[in-house]
Each structure stands twice: as structure tokens, then as C-alpha cells.
Design a protein around this nucleic acid. Structure first.
Lengths: 210, 210
DNA sequence: CTCCAATTGGAATGAGTGCTACAGTAGGCA
DNA sequence: TGCCTACTGTAGCACTCATTCCAATTGGAG
């Protein structure tokens, strides 16, 4: 308690301040979007003056990008915990979908904010939007890879269409829950989605090599 | 040409001005969202001074709500044109889905702007958001009604889940296209979606009354 | 013509915007 | 002890925001 070892104790509470700023920013940005997130509002919510925000972040764009990055990491931590490796392929896929659904309930900021940024198409694209799209492409690639692994007979065009469809379903179901609230059973709908995509995949594969 | 009959010819070009304002506003709002839509920007784009905008619309909120309403009507006109009444139920459902997809390509403003508003959750909800959610519920009810008509054995819980899933898929696929652009074949994916939902529906019905 | 209402033009208002400059403070290290 | 770096606080800049006021303009009605 007196002496920290590896990372020496920061002289001031700068790290904590940074977190407080990000906490405030993620809340406001999730409520009001990019333009609606004013430095003054973040400052008021976290109790730190604007100059502190500008000490920690280059500008507003940088702040929003950092918010996206951190909320992505939070979400990743929520998804990647358990991964059932047993059971039929359908069971595995369904379990994973349920897992993603639960992680989105637990840490929805990433996708909510990301979709808000993604739908905007302003001339000068905010860095946060770029970050979101990159990170999203990684998730997309993972799904595609899984599809190829489970059903090797699929041609690339089918893999592509199925992956797009799978991601889209996830987005859409998430949006439903954001709109209609807790009476949308996200886990059940994600599991249904996984099942339908899986069946479509096997059918597509069968059409190629019967 | 000399004498109009029912509605007398307006003295000035007020109606056309209103349209020009809405045209400019729908473009900017679709780019930048609610907060990003400034009266000054709309004024610059449509060539009319801010005072004219305030003559036609009570305030910014009123303008955005009007934008939503008009773009909804535009979209409705694009959807409701043809409706195949022949073929198997699956063919009819698929044809309708393709129709919706084409209408969304032709008139995407309504859903793009609506989703942007829907994802925001600011304390004082903008009127435009309310309008969007109401109008969306109507579309939802139509889908549910169609599901009951085509597959009468479905219990209400299944109808509800399937309807939510169907709408969510539509939203999600639309978002994919907004993000990834024209290399997303919206019509094909909507048709795939319709097929999968239809099959899930028949299976659910079979589980009830085999 | 005059009168009136519909519409436009431009300027002004006051609050809020992102952002910066800079002085002040406090902890770790010499 | 004093210096350096990390951070906080105040004040303010230049600009934009939504909104309002009011003086033109325009075109049909009497």
C-alpha cells in the first residue's frame, strides 16, 4: 500500500480523471450523438473543467474516438468470456449468439454509439466512425471464418452473403431492443437468428455439393 | 391556365418554398442528424433566409418532424405500388420483401433519418422521433397481420417474435447497405430474409398443431 | 389606385460552441 | 531546497446557434 512496484504511482489522479471524462462522454454521446456531445456538457457531468478535457484529448474528435475504443474494449471483455466447444455445430453457433446478445445487453454503448456514427455521413468523417467501422470489420471477418470452418462446402459468395445477413440481423435486433426496451428478448431472438442463418448455410452448401 | 378551380392559385411561391426548405433539410438531416442540422445550413442550401424557414415552420423541431412525415409519405408511395396476389404464400412474401427493398433503395431518407433519431435518447424527445416510432408501429402491425393471415396456426407470442425479427432484419440489412454501399445486394438479402422468416413461421406453427 | 395578407430580406439578439492561453497547484525527484 | 512534470482553474477568443424583429416586396381583391 505504501510502495507500488511495477508501475509507479502516478503523482496526480490523471488516470482517474481520464476515466471520469470518458464515463461522462460515453453517456452523453450515447444520448445525443456526435454533434450533441458538447465539451461543456461533458465537463459539467464529470466535474472537471474543459481545459482538463483538452489536456487529456487533442480535440472533440479525439475524445469521441477514445470513447468508441474504450467501449469496444468493454464489450469485447463481455463477449469473449466463455466459448462452448462441445455439442453439435448448431448448438455451438446458437450458444455463441446468445453470448453476444448477453454482452450487448451488458455493454450496449459500443454498438449504440457506433451505429449512430455509422448512419451519419458528414463530409468530414469523424475518426470515431472510422474506428467503429474497422473494429466492426474484424468482427465480420471472425463470423465469416467461423462459417467457413463449420460448413466447408460454402463458396465465397455464399459466405459473404450469409455473413452480411448475420451481422445485419444482430444490428437490427439490437436496434429493436434500443427502441422497444426490455420487452424485447434479445437472447431468444439472437438464438433464433443463429438457427435460421445456420440452416440457410447448410442449405446453400447442399446446393453446391449434393 | 388563366383560372384555377378548386384551390385558388397561391399569390406567391410559398408552397414551392416549403418544398425547397424540406428538400434541403432532408439532405442535411440525413447527413448530420438532429443536432447537426442547423437552420443556417438549411437556409444556405435552399437559398431562402432563416426568417422564411420560421415563417413556414414553428421551430427546428417542427421542421424535422415535417421532414420525417414527408419522407415517410415518399417512401410509402414507393412501397405500395404493386402487390402480387398470386403464387404460393412464400412467393408472395418474397415478392413483397423485394418490393420493400427496392423502395428503400429508391427512398432511403425516411428510414435513415428515423433510425438516427430512434437511436438517440435525449431527455426531451424530439417530435420527429415520436412521429417515426408511430409510423413504424403501423408498418409493424401490417407485418403481424400478414403473418396471421398466411399462417393462421401461429399463437400470438410467435407472431410477436416473428414480427420483431422480421422488422429487425429489415433495419439491419438497410444499415449494412448504408455503411457498405452498393455492393450490398439489398433486394437479394431481403428476399433471403423473407424466406427464412417464412420457414421459421411454418415450423413454429407446426409445433403447435402438428 | 388602395389595402391586405403572404412572403422575403437582412440584421440583430443572447446563449452556447470548440478551443486556447496562461497562471496556479501539487507530487516526485535531484 | 528547488525544479520539473502533470494536472486544474479562469478567462476569454472567434464563431455559430436558434430565434426574433421589422422593413421591404409582391400579387390578388375591392
Amino acid at each position: 500500500m505504501t510502495e507500488p512496484q511495477t508501475t509507479r504511482k502516478k503523482r496526480a489522479n490523471g488516470v482517474e480523471s481520464r476515466q471520469r471524462i470518458l464515463d461522462a462522454a460515453v453517456e452523453i454521446a450515447g444520448e445525443r450523438g456526435y454533434e450533441g456531445t458538447s465539451i461543456a456538457a461533458v465537463s459539467a457531468k464529470c466535474g472537471l473543467p474543459a481545459s482538463s478535457i483538452y489536456w487529456h484529448f487533442k480535440d472533440k474528435d479525439d475524445l469521441i474516438a477514445a470513447v468508441i475504443e474504450r467501449s469496444f474494449e468493454t464489450w469485447l471483455a463481455a463477449v469473449e468470456l466463455p466459448s462452448e466447444e462441445t455439442g453439435t455445430p448448431l448448438e455451438r453457433v446458437t450458444a455463441m449468439a446468445g453470448n453476444v446478445a448477453r454482452s450487448l445487453i451488458e455493454a450496449p454503448d459500443f454498438l449504440r454509439l457506433g451505429l449512430m456514427l455509422a448512419l451519419e455521413r458528414r463530409p468530414a468523417e469523424p475518426r470515431g466512425r472510422t474506428v467503429f467501422l474497422q473494429v466492426r470489420d474484424i468482427a465480420r471477418a471472425k463470423i465469416a471464418e467461423m462459417a467457413r470452418a463449420i460448413i466447408p462446402d460454402l463458396d465465397e459468395k455464399s459466405v459473404n452473403a450469409l455473413t452480411t445477413y448475420a451481422v445485419a440481423g444482430g444490428d437490427g435486433l439490437f436496434v429493436q431492443r434500443e427502441i422497444n426496451g426490455d420487452d424485447v428478448d434479445l437472447v431468444a431472438l439472437f438464438e433464433l437468428h443463429a438457427q435460421l442463418v445456420y440452416e440457410a448455410a447448410t442449405r446453400m452448401a447442399g446446393r453446391n455439393k449434393p
